[in-house]
Amino acid sequence: MQTSELTKHMNSENPQYVFAGMITNKVLDGIAAGIEDVLSVHEATCKKYRKIFSIFIEMTQNIIFYSDERVHLESDEAGFGALEIALDGTEVKISAANPISREQRDRIGDIMDLITRSSADEIIAIHKAKMFESMEDPNSRGAGLGYLDIAKKSVRPVHFGFEETSCGRLLFHISAWA
């Protein structure tokens, strides 16, 4: 998959961080350090950097752990994907995109559909129900807890989409705002 296909939803006018390619834990560490060092003191972002940081980590770990295009490394994992953190008016937009499998599309689609038809209060209630589910069932992987967490923290409804790329792969993209 071309990186240009990943980044076509990331054409913000005021990007602060953009990365596209194989994302490893070391890449995550580097950008996370930037968020902390820069966004925590930048006037436009200092009051919301914790929220930016947590949405960024959830999105990036999803790419590292679940991207359908990956390289197995001896001491790390690498998932193909793209990330962008951009100023968007008075808010900060955090976006991610990565290839997914057909099976992942069904699972992610179910939780994202639930999120988009729910109000902010309903998302909080669903998030709590998923937390309870993971408490009742120790083997639960808390399906969707990460996406619910992103939706709960986002100050605007999350945007998401799936699309078929020119090479016949499926792409998932998501944006949230802090």
Partner: peptide, 15 residues
């Protein structure tokens, strides 16, 4: 800071 995976760990502790 803790991620959503760590939320499950804390919930398991509480249980």
């Amino acid at each position: 800071y803790h991620n959503s995976g760590s939320t499950r760990i804390i919930m398991n502790f509480i249980r």
